Amino acid sequence: MTGMTGIHRAWGRAPLPVRRLLAHELRSVASLGRWVLRRPPHGVAGGELAAAYTGPQTAMMYGLLFVSLIETVALSVLIPWPSVHRVVLVLDVYGVLMVLAMHAACVTRPHVVRRDGSLRIRYGALFDLVVPAEAVASARVDRRYPQGRLVALSDDGVLDLIVGSQTTVTLELNRPLPFTRPLGSRAQARTIRFHADDPRALVAALRQPAPS
């Protein structure tokens, strides 16, 4: 019990970005297990639309995985010191695991158009935002190729959630909507642009009236 108390205290003292990153990694590893076991997508109930968004990044993820495996094999041959080799091997295996876990989190945590008309926008275990149905002024298919990081917010309140250097859906909101960035800071968005592999199906589902 004392040991657990110490862990909780240490966790509470850790900076918020560190706690967020560790939580992301744990959820990603759990998603890898869900993916391997072919469990249903996370957070998708019956009658709700699960919208995938991994299309633009799948080839890149598998390419990165291939490069990591080649690097692991090459370093095992080139490094002559056993102790250094073991450390590098552990780091390489960890890197491969994280690449797989990140992709698995994206596959098993799709966007969701819920039965009440709300939309859950996600990127793996890193980003999760629920947009209430009444907050959506309009939704349209709108392919763009913005530059920047995964989560980018402009000065005029346009939030881009970029996958494979593109977005395909634009939501115009009728009020500012607060959201949490991956490392824990808070901000507000008036417009949200994100990627869906089948943007027309997602937009059509959003435009359907919510069941009474």
Rank of each mutant, 00 (worst) to 15 (best):
Pro56Glu: 02
Thr58Pro: 01
Val29Leu: 15
Gly47Ile: 07
Ala30Ile: 01
Ala59Gln: 08
Leu89Arg: 05
Thr54Pro: 05
Ser28Met: 15
Ala45Met: 08
Val93Cys: 14
Met61Thr: 11
Val88Tyr: 00
Asp92Asn: 14
Asp92Thr: 06
Tyr94Asn: 08
Val87Ala: 07
Leu91Glu: 06
Val88Asp: 02
Thr72Ser: 14
Ser68Trp: 07
Thr54Ile: 09
Gly63Glu: 06
Leu78Lys: 03
Val67Phe: 13
Val44Tyr: 08
Met61Pro: 01
Leu89Ser: 01
Gly95Tyr: 07
Tyr53Ser: 01
Leu26Arg: 12
Arg38Cys: 11
Arg34Tyr: 12
Ile70Asn: 03
Val84Trp: 00
Leu78Cys: 01
Thr54Arg: 10
Ala59Ile: 08
Thr72Gly: 14
Ala52Met: 08
Leu75His: 04
Ala52Gly: 08
Thr54Phe: 11
Tyr94Met: 07
Tyr94His: 12
Ala52Gln: 12
Val90Leu: 13
Leu65Pro: 05
Val67Tyr: 09
Ala51Thr: 03
Ala74Val: 03
Leu37Glu: 10
Ile70Glu: 09
Asp92Gln: 15
Leu69Ala: 09
Trp35Gly: 07
Tyr94Gly: 04
Val77Asp: 02
Leu78Glu: 01
Ser76Gln: 14
Ala52Val: 03
Glu71Tyr: 05
Pro80Lys: 05
Thr72Cys: 15
Val88Phe: 01
Pro41Trp: 15
Leu89Ala: 11
Leu64Pro: 01
Asp92Cys: 13
Leu26Asp: 05
Ala30Tyr: 06
Leu78Thr: 03
Gly47Ser: 04
Val36Asp: 04
Val29Asn: 07
His85Asp: 00
Ser68Met: 11
Leu89Glu: 04
Pro56Tyr: 04
Val87Cys: 00
Val90Gly: 10
Val67Ser: 09
Thr58Asp: 02
Val67Arg: 00
Val90Phe: 14
Val36Ser: 04
Leu32Gln: 04
Leu75Arg: 05
Tyr53His: 10
Leu32Tyr: 11
Phe66Pro: 02
Arg39Cys: 10
Leu64Lys: 10
Val77Met: 13
Gly63Asp: 02
Leu49Glu: 00
Gly33Pro: 04
Ser83Ala: 11
Ala74Asn: 02
Val77Phe: 14
Val96Leu: 15
Val87Tyr: 00
His85Trp: 04
Leu65Trp: 14
Val67Leu: 14
Phe66Tyr: 07
Ile70Met: 14
Thr72Pro: 03
Gln57Leu: 13
Arg38Glu: 09
Gly55Asp: 05
Ser83Gln: 04
Leu75Tyr: 04
Ser76Phe: 12
Tyr62His: 14
Met60Ile: 13
Tyr94Asp: 08
Tyr53Asp: 01
Trp81Arg: 01
Gly47Gln: 03
Met60Pro: 00
Asp92Glu: 13
Ala30Lys: 08
Leu64Ile: 09
Glu71Pro: 00
Val77Gly: 02
Val73Cys: 06
Phe66Ile: 11
Val29Thr: 06
Leu91His: 06
Gly33Lys: 05
Leu49Tyr: 11
Arg86Val: 03
His42Ile: 12
Met60Phe: 10
Val36Met: 11
Tyr53Lys: 02
Gly43Thr: 07
Pro80Thr: 03
